[in-house]
Design a binder for these strands. Structure first.
Lengths: 197, 197
DNA sequence: ATCGTATCTTTACAGTGTAAAGTTTGCATT
DNA sequence: AATGCAAACTTTACACTGTAAAGATACGAT
């Protein structure tokens, strides 16, 4: 446990990001503020500026943290569904929705950041882990002579759109607390037709 | 032209919504504020409260206005692409992306509102125009004995996800100023396989 | 002409982001 | 151990924003 002296928190950068994640779960995107993060981390409101510059910088750091957590989450989802190629792909899609259910506002922050900014933090956009999970899961469905990202973009568009519409209650009545398996499977049936038969 | 007396704008509700739409195009979602809308409409910062209650209420009204404009836009897109069922469906999808390119922040406001709120303003969710356009365009692709909304949700998920990812620069490099026809057609090729063959 | 309600304006306050000046601490150097 | 510098904060200040309350003006009904 880091010892905090009067002017030296010790691990404030991390603490602020963690505070941000907690606030997002507690109060949503609109409840996230620089001062609340600072208060939660036990420092004055101006302390974050030294590490992040401003609120946009802090959001960038939070978004990147979500990116990292999400990547690991998707890797686990892929590893869990090993039965077949299509089961793995659908398992990843299900994981995408589940992550959104568990942390809707985290996704909002992550997708509110320009990809160039995540790339800057990541150092290599093309090797981003969650995208790599998608790429590997889609690989079996890419017809010969076809650019892999065509199928990747089809899948990503479908699942991202479904997640956004479902989480915002546009595909269903009532509060979203879990995946509606029936409707989910029905929409994801389109994944059975990724490659022309 | 409405004559504005000292304490009576005449059509402030409309003016504030219009001001909001303009601000969204000029400064994006983060540049939208109650005070800026009021200033643009030529009234004091507290005037909107009488009509909308608060900022959330004003956003709701702006979102509903976008909903109305978008519905007409989609109706026009559907009418324009009359060649075949699939051409019409793809034309609507293309219109969805184009609308987002033209007014990204308008979509952000519209999708930031709970559908129950739009329903309250609309009076009948199931009859919402843009959804009706989607429904009619999807109808030819619904297999016998299948619930229509399954295909509708597949199409909506795909095009909504594509629009969001494309507009935020996750599917392409550089600034988004127009639809990339090649990539768009490649992703929308999935629409050719809506019904099992 | 009068009255009540609608439609504003003005004043005030809390929360927020950012900036600048100041203080404290850790670490490197001597 | 002493010193100095930069890092890592705190404090103070200000502008912007949302909201609320009190007050002023205007419209429409009677």
């Amino acid at each position: 446990m880091t010892t905090k002296t009067k002017h030296h928190h010790g691990d404030l950068k991390n603490a602020l990001v963690k505070a941000g994640l907690a606030l997002l779960d507690e109060e949503g995107l609109e409840g996230l503020s620089l001062r609340k993060c600072a208060a939660k981390a036990g420092v004055s409101h101006a302390a974050p500026a030294h590490h992040f510059g401003n609120l946009a910088g802090l959001k960038g750091a939070i978004g990147f943290e979500v990116f990292t957590i999400f990547s690991k989450y998707m890797q686990d989802a892929a590893a869990r569904e090993g039965d077949s190629d299509i089961a793995r792909l659908k398992g990843i899609c299900r994981g995408y929705v589940q992550f959104g259910i568990d942390h809707k506002s985290w996704l909002d922050v992550m997708f509110g950041i320009a990809p160039a900014e995540i790339a800057k933090l990541r150092g290599d956009l093309g090797d981003s882990n969650s995208y790599q999970v998608l790429r590997q899961a889609c690989a079996p469905f890419v017809p010969e002579g076809v650019e892999p990202h065509i199928v990747e973009f089809q899948v990503w568009s479908l699942i991202h759109g479904y997640t956004q519409l479902f989480l915002s209650g546009r595909l269903n009545q009532g509060e979203v607390t879990q995946i509606d398996d029936g409707p989910f499977d029905q929409v994801m049936a389109l994944l059975d037709r990724l490659a022309p038969s």
